[in-house]
Simulated assay, not measured.
Amino acid sequence: MRLIDAVPKEGSKRRRRRVGRGISAGQGASCGFGMRGQKSRSGRPTRPGFEGGQMPLYRRLPKLKGFPVINRVNYTIVNVEDLAGLEANTEVTLTSLMEAGIVTSDDGPLKILGNGDINVPLTVKAAAFTQSARAKIEAAKGTCELESAE
């Protein structure tokens, strides 16, 4: 098959309608657009989404970009640098951090972020770790254990 063989099927293409060329042509004078009004004017079609001046749907939807996450999980976040002051081989959980005074409020399950450095081996039990936090804790000969985020 060649490019010249790619032609529309016989009878599938109709010639364009020549409007406004006299009444004998079948579409003279108002060209089939009726008498007056916005839909009869030249340059006629309104833009997609136009609702006659009413605030269109795409502008009525939530003003802020995106939609809220329905069941969003709020984490109590702690950076790796905050854990550096703990003693070696300590088991780190949310309750132990609250007892140590590193965390003052329980905002949800514990998440460890990777800001700062650590050089003491710790056993960290948290609901989530960032990749950099996990790498730094394991580089310091510590372990990362995932707990359920309830």
Rank of each mutant, 00 (worst) to 15 (best):
P68R: 14
N119M: 04
D106S: 12
V78E: 02
N115Q: 14
G11A: 10
G28Q: 05
G43K: 08
R72H: 09
A149M: 11
G49R: 14
E145L: 14
V103G: 00
T46V: 14
A88R: 12
V7T: 12
A135Y: 04
M1R: 07
T93L: 06
R14D: 09
G20R: 06
Q27F: 15
A127F: 01
L3R: 10
S12P: 01
R47T: 15
L146T: 06
S132L: 13
D117H: 05
S24E: 11
T90M: 07
E51Q: 15
V69K: 08
F129G: 01
T143N: 05
I137H: 02
C31P: 00
A133V: 04
F129N: 02
S42M: 10
E99T: 13
G52I: 11
P109L: 03
A25V: 07
Y58H: 15
I112C: 02
L122M: 03
P8K: 09
V92C: 00
T143A: 08
K9M: 14
L61T: 15
V92T: 00
A140I: 06
R41M: 12
G101I: 05
N119S: 15
V73F: 00
L113I: 09
T90Q: 08
K39S: 10
S42Y: 07
Y75R: 03
A84K: 07
P56Q: 08
R59Q: 15
Q131T: 13
M35C: 05
P62F: 14
A6V: 11
R41H: 08
A88K: 13
A140G: 06
I137T: 03
C31K: 12
I102N: 00
E138D: 03
G108E: 03
E81T: 03
L146C: 03
S132I: 15
Y75A: 05
G85A: 09
T46S: 10
R41F: 07
A84H: 05
G108T: 07
R15M: 09
K39M: 11
L110K: 00
